[in-house]
Amino acid sequence: MQVTRLSCGGFVLAYTLNHCACDTNGALQFMKIIAEFCCDDPRRKTPSTLPSWGREILKPRSPPIIYIRHPEYNNLGDSANHHETSAKFDLEALVQTSVFLSNNDILALKRLVTGRKCVSLDVMASCLWRARTRTLFKTRYNNDMSCTMRLLFPIDTRFQFKPDLPKGFYGSTMVVPSVVTTASELLEKPLSHAASLISKAKKEVARDEYRASVVDFLEVNKGGEFWDGMFVTDMRWFKFTEVDFGWGKGVYAGPARAGVGPVPWMVTSMFYHKNVNGVDEGVLALISLPSSLVNKFHNEVRREIRGFSAL
């Protein structure tokens, strides 16, 4: 953790974490505990919510029962299913950019998905996925309409399955389902098609024992390596801006960069935010791209919102 004091009297609190220890919910719990010690009686000895390790609840079954496929993981060495070309970007050449989707933008995307009730995550992720694919289609996908495309998105299972986790549990409860399709299907069919694929994947996660199947899969395969693709993290429900260290609510509370780990260009994070004027509310999405493609990506996002569909 690092605190940087600003000349205006404010400060920046930066920290890094390992998902082997906690997930975003666990990180928020930790920040709230720190805030309590900053603001409360200095004689406070314990946090209001005691942290719980409790990892034994999520141990694999004996014998393991992997009752569904987990296409998000590349543990079978099946090179025939690999969807990306071997070309890699120079990670040092990547730049950070952000896309602000106002509430009106999100509503416009929902209107494009006619004939079905659509969740905001489904249309936003579809919009960003399609825009990113169009942006990278020549440089990374070699204009190959047959290549396989993947969208991965973590889902918090903390309150979905039995057995219940103990109060204060801060460990990782995320599962990461994936949507798999071809570039042709993703780009030539309407936005509603991509949104329906995401909705279907989410319903699969809602099935009983899905989390247990993931735990068993990771046990049998001694861990898991995600396929390369687009990884969209939905952080809208984690109210980090509400955490008060004694200076009031935060002005910004989100990732410092779009991606982390071995594939920093792959991860996109979304969270609630206001535009640069602090007036319009919406969702801010962070993404890493080669600098030469940033403007093209922003243009593709706007075209998606306007209902553009042809490649």
Rank of each mutant, 00 (worst) to 15 (best):
M149K: 11
R211A: 13
C127T: 12
V220Y: 01
L191I: 11
L186N: 00
Y210R: 08
N18G: 11
N142F: 08
T24K: 02
C38E: 00
N275S: 09
S79M: 12
I66M: 09
R207L: 14
R211Y: 14
I34T: 06
A310N: 15
F89L: 07
E185P: 06
L17F: 15
S146M: 09
P154S: 05
G171D: 03
M149W: 04
H19E: 10
L289Y: 04
P51K: 01
G168P: 07
V243Y: 02
F240R: 03
W129I: 04
L109T: 03
L112D: 05
D41N: 12
S62L: 00
E92I: 06
L76K: 13
V243G: 03
T24H: 11
C127D: 07
A125M: 15
I305S: 04
M145F: 13
Y73D: 04
E219D: 09
H298L: 15
V95W: 02
P290C: 00
E56I: 11
T49V: 03
P166F: 06
D105W: 05
S291Y: 07
A87L: 10
G224K: 00
S146K: 13
L152H: 15
L28E: 13
K200P: 01
L197Q: 07
L151H: 04
H83E: 10
C20E: 13
V119K: 11
R211V: 11
K249Y: 08
G248I: 02
G9P: 00
D216T: 06
R306E: 15
V3S: 05
K200T: 14
R134I: 12
V243R: 01
N142V: 03
C127L: 09
A253P: 04
Y210G: 07
D244W: 07
V294T: 13
L91K: 13
N25F: 15
S192L: 01
N221P: 04
P154C: 03
Y272N: 15
V232P: 07
Y252K: 10
F30S: 10
D41A: 07
L121C: 10
V267D: 05
R158P: 03
D78W: 10
G115W: 09
P262R: 12
T181S: 11
A310R: 14
W227T: 01
